[in-house]
Design a protein around this nucleic acid. Structure first.
Lengths: 214, 214
DNA sequence: GCCCTGATCGGGCAAATTGCCTGGGGGCGA
DNA sequence: TCGCCCCCAGGCAATTTGCCCGATCAGGGC
């Protein structure tokens, strides 16, 4: 039996959850809350197995509520169920300690699947949000790269992937000085103030983004 | 009418594509290839509107083939259709210039949808891969961060997000020299050879990677 | 052929940063 | 009270950055 705490400022929506969840044999809603403060109180009182929470709450935001609860109980499992499909919301929620993120446009089956995953300690993410995050990660803006010549692009790729100046000089059979010059030229063309900034721009342009195979 | 070039080393699989795609009124398979070299030749000969390609080909990898074709025609639209669902494969493919990535576990409808998107110049990604990339993006590995003190973590976050040394000094009310020292210390503790490398490690640790709310 | 443009390659030099060491102060557990 | 670790920052040589310059080579256009 899985004890659930429901947090949503809309009683009607809570009623909807209740209908859906209590039809499942293993789930029981043991408490409800309409805002962050209530959620926190309720959590401390009933220690539910999982929390299902909306992100837009009156007063403190849902992200704050997540952070607060996780601070009190590091093992808390919180599933965000919200209308926002933006990648930024989801990332913030996970950063705060949420275990799952499902949008309200998902169907009942998807919510139940997410609840099951989170209850087992896993991480759940609905398809539309996954797609958003992936899209952001893949980046849209080429633009930048078009300003650069092929050699510059090549060197940007290498620099952004973490290579040393000397590495690059070796790989491309150039003088280290030339690589430095390109490096500098790229930064000024692109308008990056920092190497780190350069990396982000390169990611945005789709030039890099690997994480495997160094 | 959309002209398609099919690249897959398995004739039976190509037959499958053909069945599926030629049932659609707008698609016509104008050429086939069984390896990277053939694909390249065929592309130059028929200039198809889109290429549907497997990633695992005999000889040169599909990624190489993509890079090669894009080098010859920057406007080429290439849709990868493969069995690999790993994020790394997909990222490499996009980096090389692919416009879409669909796994063979997707159903026919998803492939057709992807073909349509790519034909229109968009970018397509199947759900399972999106999920993989998102998972990777959310990051698993803390590890690194545990080595660092809170101050170091803070500074790493700022450095990795692209701030200038002076910016950081201003934000945290420190001497620029102190920031430089932390910056150096972090690099040696974490084992990063380059600032760019540092950014990747910070991303992996989930410290940065927002893109919103600066 | 000739000029112009643009990409590629690198030297030079001052100013800034990195790499590494040093040292002092504060908190906290043994 | 003694370490130990974290915080903060100066010093100094070595390297890199920032910005200048000139040389070569390929492709147009006239």
């Amino acid at each position: 039996m899985t004890a659930i705490l429901l947090v949503d400022d809309h009683p009607i929506v809570r009623e909807g959850y209740r209908r859906l969840l209590e039809r499942q044999p293993d789930y029981r809603i043991v408490a409800e809350a309409a805002n962050a403060a209530e959620a926190y109180q309720a959590y401390r009182k009933v220690s539910p197995d999982i929390v299902i929470m909306d992100l837009s709450l009156p007063g403190a935001s849902g992200v704050e509520a997540v952070r607060h609860i996780k601070q009190w109980d590091k093992g808390a499992r919180i599933l965000i169920f919200t209308m926002h499909s933006g990648a930024a919301f989801a990332l913030k929620a996970f950063e705060a300690g949420a275990s799952g993120y499902v949008t309200k446009s998902s169907d009942a089956a998807e919510l139940l699947r997410a609840v099951a995953i989170v209850a087992k300690g896993g991480r759940a993410l609905s398809d539309d949000v996954a797609r958003e995050i992936a899209a952001e990660r893949l980046g849209e803006g080429r633009a930048l790269v078009d300003e650069l010549g092929p050699r510059e692009t090549e060197i940007l790729r290498l620099v952004a992937s973490g290579r040393t100046t000397e590495d690059i000089a070796g790989i491309l059979n150039l003088s280290p000085k030339t690589v430095q010059n390109y490096h500098y030229q790229i930064k000024s063309k692109i308008g990056a103030r920092t190497d780190a900034h350069l990396v982000w721009l390169a990611i945005g342009a789709g030039l890099v983004g690997d994480a495997s195979a160094t």
